[in-house]
Write a protein that binds this DNA or RNA. Structure first.
Lengths: 205, 205, 205, 205
DNA sequence: CATGAATGAGATTTCATTCAT
DNA sequence: AATGAATGAAATCTCATTCAT
């Protein structure tokens, strides 16, 4: 299924920018993120790609396959991104700030837990497992950064897994909008700073 | 439609314990929580209630209506529960511990954000608004408790709305299970304590 | 089913203007005329009457019964009306003019043929027969007026049944509106006159 | 979707006579004419075509779409037919006779007004407009024939639109059957002649 | 006389999926 | 590699009708 490597030699005259399979995956990822698993139909994906349903089925045997691949690939990309951000040579808090800002600037809010529940009845055990593992690996990157910081004494010893999950869950606060569509803080910058500060200091002094 | 009070005199021959409408609402609430809006069909609800689809439609004109009512009623119940817990005459941290424990003991994990996204395309504007408002009111109870604690000097001045949302979002960490189905902490008690501690103290000392 | 006679003695304190059965029949007649047999539901009728469906069923055993009664009663009323108009002591053409005007002023256009086709699959043979007979009797009134006029020499001998149907069918021209919603003649008066003139004189000189 | 022209070369192994879409349209047209819009279900159409409901929906997105297309195509065919008949090089009265006979020989009686009322609540504005326009164009062909005859002096000057509608409405008299199922005239030939005569001469001498 | 509750049958519509070409 | 045609199964919703009260 993977054919990432460029074909050798001169590319075809019709050098379409992206191979169809990639287009499908990208479109599907966006649609699933925006609307959820159940709501998005294979026809929706096909139409947005400018191909027919049958073409989508040519590349992905089932909708569950397409969804799983879309989500897993996305988590892999995100993990890389997190890794890059957290690898910078800066104080941990600065790196967390950058992480948070990047997350909150993304237009769509990735509600993995929601996806899991929605798809639970439709995905095979194996597919759920694949997604879980990809999710775990995302958290591990952050966890590792916390472990490193603890070893260096930048932050006190603590439970790094809790720390990692706590940080990501706090970020979801940034996407909250109340019944008047108002977020908790008016600007993304302020939001970012407040959340990271809260994470850093806790409620008590 | 509400006839909570017992009728005077001898009860009807068929003294069914709950009126059908309540049965439907309860069953629907559970199913929606467990499986999400799209996956649950009106027939699923009907069958679990031991009635026909048409009966469900007799009480709720559309699936969206049933869903909205189910979610709003549930949020109202939760809000009352939170209010009771937070009204106790105890230190704030103890009250938060009780809140957290109650939340984490509930079998189903309420992923409001996920519901909102899933239902966004199916609910009317008015219905979304109703849900949003019920959600807001849930947070306000916690927010108010934080405000009171700040006024009394139990916790330092801060942004109470952020504090409220941060707490609830941190609770979701308690429901996380990794790819081996292992939660972050083995017991609910330990989970509760660690999460509230983290909330209370933050990452840094 | 008929209980037309007033009860003797002082009427009840709550002298509701019309007995429920009449209300139902009137409302049903109007709805069926406006929308057709299939489109109108028993619930529509009930709601417009301010009663429940069960009440409608109390008076009419089936929808087909209600429809048949509504249509037959209506045709009886119309027949009376036609009879009155055609009994006047005026030249035939004047009476026809009055007939035509009365017909075209009625807000709803009675498309009996359409009703028959729509209801054909739903009505019993007997019910269709009842409607047919009521329809026939309507035409007979007009037919008789033509026979009388022929006997008196007011119009030439001819086929009176054809004459009757021709007149009624020509009246439907008055309800025609083109794709811009424009009728053939701007005012009902002109329409009436032109149609009756056409009927009277024919196409050729 | 149109592939009227025969494909070059050897025909496909399954050389079905008519493409499925045409079969559906033809069957639907007949059913709608015979029973009306509401009574005919998509399943009825599908079964008569030997396909499944889903196939019907593959070609027509909604029942209203199918109905509109069926009616409009039918009116276009009728208009062509009327045009051919009225284009013959014969006296107008003879052409009208032929027109009338053709109309009365058709097994189903096309009650456009009834269709419009029945479908009014189910069709979109655009669809109603399409039907209206097709209907208008049918009348225009007849209207034009009358205009030409007036210019040539074959018939006296008059209101051609009225003349066109009057003629078509008079034709409906030919389909009338009384409560004993007897038409006004025993044979189609006599019916035709009497109706056209009536149209031509009017009631008065 | 009137109603609220309930239902069975059926309508429209959607959609993941297959298959021959 | 891609498609058009077709389908089975299921989902949402409607409605005439019944019945106990």
């Amino acid at each position: 299924m993977q054919q990432e490597h460029r074909p050798l030699g001169r590319p075809r005259q019709d050098h379409k920018e992206k191979p169809t399979k990639n287009v499908i995956l990208d479109v599907a990822t966006r649609l699933f993120l925006e609307q959820g698993y159940q709501v998005v139909s294979m026809d929706d994906v096909a139409k947005k790609c400018g191909v027919t349903k049958a073409t989508v089925y040519y590349y992905y045997k089932t909708k569950a396959d397409l969804f799983t691949d879309a989500m897993v690939q996305m988590m892999i990309r995100i993990r890389k991104r997190i890794f890059d951000i957290l690898s910078a040579d800066k104080p941990l808090k600065d790196r967390l700030l950058e992480f948070a800002k990047a997350h909150l600037q993304a237009t769509v809010d990735i509600d993995l837990k929601g996806f899991m529940k929605e798809a639970k009845t439709s995905l095979s055990k194996d597919q759920l497992q694949q997604m879980k593992e990809a999710e775990d690996k995302m958290y591990e990157v952050l966890e590792q950064a916390l472990i490193n910081a603890m070893e260096k004494g930048d932050i006190p010893q603590g439970h790094p897994k809790l720390g990692a999950h706590a940080f990501v869950s706090l970020l979801t606060v940034g996407n909250y909008k109340d019944s008047d569509q108002k977020p908790i803080f008016p600007s993304i910058d302020e939001m970012t700073e407040q959340i990271v500060d809260f994470y850093w200091n806790g409620l008590a002094k």
